[in-house]
């Protein structure tokens, strides 16, 4: 990383951060700026269309994808605190536009600019020390789309291990799906919960006080069960840990039974 040069980054903040977890998006901005990025936030962006695409509703997905492509003109990096949303743009859009050569070309061009946050920090900016302070024992859940969709396995771990005050502990089967699956969690809630239960058992078994991940979808799902049952562990997005984290969990995410 060259500290003298400013790196233009457009933040693709995602629906979940927008509507439920604004602090995740602010944390992402803070970390990006810490390493020399000039962050722009295109406010015309809405949803990338993944829920529609994943449920087979391609007409609606295409409409949203078109709007997304127009919201990110130029050629700077596009960075998102979500492996899943980033993977949608990179891999889903070429499927959506496979019969529209001009839009397909645009989709490829935009897709090449898209990175997930931890991937961008490590692979593009070459961050090895995130210059963060955080206190606690943390375990990491591999978001399926970050790990298998984008192939990002090590970047978040590299960052976590380098944070002062973080005791990083791997859970068993960290790459096993948490059961969210977007629309899946509404269509098959019982199966989804069985999977979440399995995931939460693995998290709790580590004895960590925090579970983190690169996707708010997973975290919302995991936190939903943690909160309902009252497990002594809190879900937090990696961006927030990198930004220094909340000393106290923000309202709306705290486990009810947490100490």
């Amino acid at each position: 990383m060259d500290p003298r040069r400013s790196i233009p980054v457009s933040l693709f903040f995602t629906c979940l951060a927008d509507a439920f977890y604004p602090r995740t998006a602010f944390a992402a901005v803070e970390v990006l700026e810490r390493f020399g990025a000039t962050v722009r936030v295109p406010l015309s962006q809405t949803c990338c269309g993944q829920p529609a695409f994943n449920s087979g509703n391609r007409k609606e997905a295409r409409a949203m994808a078109r709007k997304f492509l127009l919201s990110f003109p130029g050629d700077g990096y596009i960075v998102s605190p979500s492996g899943s949303c980033a993977a949608m743009v990179k891999h889903g859009y070429p499927v959506l536009f496979r019969d529209e050569p001009r839009t397909l070309a645009l989709a490829h061009a935009v897709g090449e600019r898209v990175y997930e946050l931890s991937q961008f920090l490590v692979e593009v900016l070459g961050v090895t020390d995130p210059k963060s302070d955080f206190s606690g024992k943390v375990t990491y859940h591999d978001s399926c789309h970050l790990r298998r969709g984008l192939g990002v396995v090590e970047a978040p771990r590299t960052l976590l291990r380098a944070i002062r005050g973080v005791e990083f502990v791997e859970m068993e089967e960290s790459d096993r799906c948490c059961g969210f699956g977007g629309v899946f969690s509404l269509k098959y809630p019982q199966i989804s919960c069985r999977m979440t239960e399995h995931k939460v058992e693995r998290i709790v078994a580590t004895g960590a006080s925090w579970v983190t991940s690169g996707d708010l979808g997973c975290l919302m799902n995991i936190d939903g069960m943690i909160s309902r049952v009252g497990y002594p562990v809190k879900a937090i997005h990696l961006a927030e840990i990198l930004a220094g984290g909340p000393a106290e969990p923000a309202p709306g995410t705290a486990g009810k039974g947490t100490p």
């Binding site: 449920s55 799906c177 969210f180 699956g181």
Partner: peptide
């Protein structure tokens, strides 16, 4: 076809 989270495993 809906009985999957598309986790990719």
């Amino acid at each position: 076809p809906d009985a999957s989270t598309l986790c990719g495993a």
